[in-house]
């Protein structure tokens, strides 16, 4: 394939060969710094336990690749359960968050809505003064959500940044469209569903993906609010068994546990927790540069 070269502006002197080399080296180093850790983790998870042990805990390339570690963690033990919990919380949470955010952002984007100004100010104030961990914990306790999946969703239902971005985008929908719809007798609901939402697909996608990523990545709220380990999401399981060095105690896979070195299993958990992010990343990336950031910089 022919690489498309951009054009150097006329006023710029041709780059010194030394500068070009330095730039090339810098770029290779930057890419390696990001990519190599992922490569090592994936390779280690795929390597045979014996190779990993022989090499001192890691490999850069699996000589005898096998999926033993993955079949072990996906065989229905702690990790499988936690993956389901994470997936469930992510899907339900994203749906709830997106609904609440769209509805509030739409209402606040309508000019002269009843109470619009004070509500917007109250919402923005939470940016400046977020509540601390202790009061947040006590509120969850008071509302009786402790140790329930709802505690992983309700306390983070609306993200103010996402709300502001979405409201800004909704405000840019031409007022004439609403005016015309109103003359045709359309309700606010009809305007939201037939005008605003179809025109805002990009921002809805970005905000939805942001919510999904943050639900998938969240572990601290689970540590704070969920006492029952069987209700833990994957990230908290990863933190407890991999980072804190606990063993994945699991009677159903103990036999396989003997066959496989823990390091390959641990790295397989890391990969499992990363995969969804890497999968949605291309979609995220396609939207966020133009969609979200244009709005964010303006506001």
């Amino acid at each position: 394939m022919k690489p498309r070269r951009g054009v150097r502006p006329a006023w710029q002197e041709p780059p010194h060969p030394l500068t070009s080399t330095a730039k090339a080296v810098a770029i290779v180093v930057v890419i390696a710094l990001v990519a190599v850790p992922f490569l090592v983790v994936v390779s280690t998870s795929l390597a045979s336990p014996a190779d990993v042990v022989a090499n001192g805990g890691w490999v850069i390339w699996p000589e005898h690749p096998s999926f033993a570690a993955y079949s072990q963690i996906l065989a229905g033990g702690v990790v499988s359960r936690a993956t389901l919990v994470s997936a469930g919380v992510t899907i339900v949470g994203t749906a709830c968050s997106l609904t609440a955010t769209v509805l509030l952002a739409y209402a606040l984007s309508r000019p002269k809505v009843f109470g619009g100004k004070p509500i917007t100010l109250l919402v923005l104030f939470t940016f400046l003064f977020p509540p601390g961990i202790i009061p947040a914990y006590l509120v969850v306790k008071q509302t009786g959500l402790l140790d329930s999946y709802a505690a992983l969703i309700a306390p983070v239902l609306v993200n103010t940044f996402n709300l502001v971005v979405m409201r800004g985008f909704f405000q840019s929908v031409p007022a004439e469209l609403y005016e015309a719809a109103r003359l045709d007798g359309a309700s606010e609901w009809a305007m939201l569903s037939r005008i605003t939402i179809p025109l805002s697909r990009a921002v809805l996608a970005v905000v939805g993906l942001f919510y999904a990523v943050s639900y998938w990545n969240s572990w601290f709220n689970a540590l704070l609010y969920i006492d029952t380990p069987t209700r833990w999401p994957l990230q908290l399981v990863l933190r407890t068994y991999v980072l804190a060095g606990g063993q994945i105690a699991d009677p159903s896979t103990s036999e396989a546990g003997l066959l496989s070195a823990p390091q390959t299993v641990q790295m397989a958990v890391v990969v499992l927790a990363t995969i969804p992010i890497v999968l949605v990343y291309p979609f995220l990336q396609r939207f966020f540069v133009k969609g979200v950031l244009s709005g964010a910089i303006k506001s």
Binding site: L103, A107, F114, I119
Partner: peptide, 9 residues
């Protein structure tokens, strides 16, 4: 109805 939209948030 707009106020009703705001309720969950």
């Amino acid at each position: 109805i707009l106020l009703a939209f705001m309720v969950p948030g």
